[in-house]
Simulated scan of single mutants.
Amino acid sequence: MNTGPTWKLYADTPGRRLAQLLGDLLALGLAVLAIRAGQVVHRRVRELVAPGRELEEAGTRVHDSLATTGAELSGIPGVGDALRQPLDAVAATGGSIASIGRAQQNLMNELATPLALLVALAGLLLVACWVVARARWVRAVREACRMATSQAGVRLLALRALTSRSVDSLTAVHPDPATAWREGDADATAELAEVQLRALGLRAPSWRGRDAT
């Protein structure tokens, strides 16, 4: 018997094939969206550097201006030092403001990439889960197609149906499917194998009642 190609990316049954195709398109769209979202987050966080830069520049201007003025006033005999002290205090405040601005810039620069990666990876993780599930399906279908080309493989497919498919689907094949399989009922075994193939989204081949070759 021959069930066709042993490598399939999509199911034979229309409903499942459509679901897989839509899932692949959704996963692709989500991957693009996750990357774009990461880029947006990175850009927005980097934009927060600007207020810190303005704060640093303002603090630096205050510090430099008052420090210069204080240095000039210190040259006045008798009162120079007294006039300089309050100016130096305010200049120090300006320096502190500049330091805060620099710290904010450093923080935003440090956070931009990690936050962007976190947002992108959150979406890409969902995509990875879908990719893994699809890979498992492809592997299961490839194995089932290979098994369906031999009599021993058909019996193994039937056994897998007995251990994994619903009771209703099994008893629709035979009132006592386990006994029929154990006694080597060719028709029942073939139908049970078909149940397993259909569960994977594959068309069941017309080999009921015939030995696999």
Rank of each mutant, 00 (worst) to 15 (best):
G4V: 03
T149Y: 10
L83P: 01
L87R: 06
R139C: 11
A190E: 14
R146K: 07
V90G: 00
A193M: 08
L9A: 12
W7N: 14
D12H: 10
A204M: 07
S99L: 04
Q39A: 08
L9T: 13
T171R: 15
L21S: 11
R36C: 14
Q105F: 01
R142E: 15
D12A: 10
P175R: 07
R16K: 14
P51F: 05
V131W: 12
P14S: 11
V49W: 00
T6Q: 08
D187P: 06
V62W: 00
G209T: 00
E56V: 02
P77K: 11
L66E: 02
L192N: 03
A190Y: 01
S164M: 09
E183V: 06
L73P: 07
P77S: 15
S65C: 05
A133C: 09
R36V: 15
S150I: 01
V138D: 08
A140V: 07
E56W: 04
A180S: 03
G101M: 07
L126Y: 14
V127T: 06
K8R: 14
V90Q: 04
L118R: 10
Q20H: 08
S164L: 08
T93C: 08
L162P: 03
A172K: 14
R102N: 10
R53N: 07
D88E: 15
G153R: 04
N2R: 11
V41G: 00
S74A: 14
A122V: 05
L87C: 03
G209I: 01
A158M: 11
G59I: 08
W181S: 01
P77H: 14
K8L: 15
L170D: 10
S206M: 05
H42K: 12
A89L: 12
R210D: 06
G80R: 04
D187E: 15
W130P: 10
V62A: 12
Q151G: 09
T189G: 07
R61A: 13
R134W: 05
L25E: 14
H42Q: 09
L157D: 00
A71L: 05
T163H: 11
G123Q: 10
A89F: 12
L200F: 01
R84D: 13
A148H: 09
A34N: 03
A27P: 04
P205Q: 10
G94C: 06
L117P: 05
A122R: 12
P86W: 12
L48D: 14
S65D: 14
I76E: 11
A172Q: 10
A128K: 10
R53E: 15
R44M: 07
E54F: 08
R198N: 14
L118I: 08
L30K: 10
W181Q: 13
G123E: 08
T113I: 06
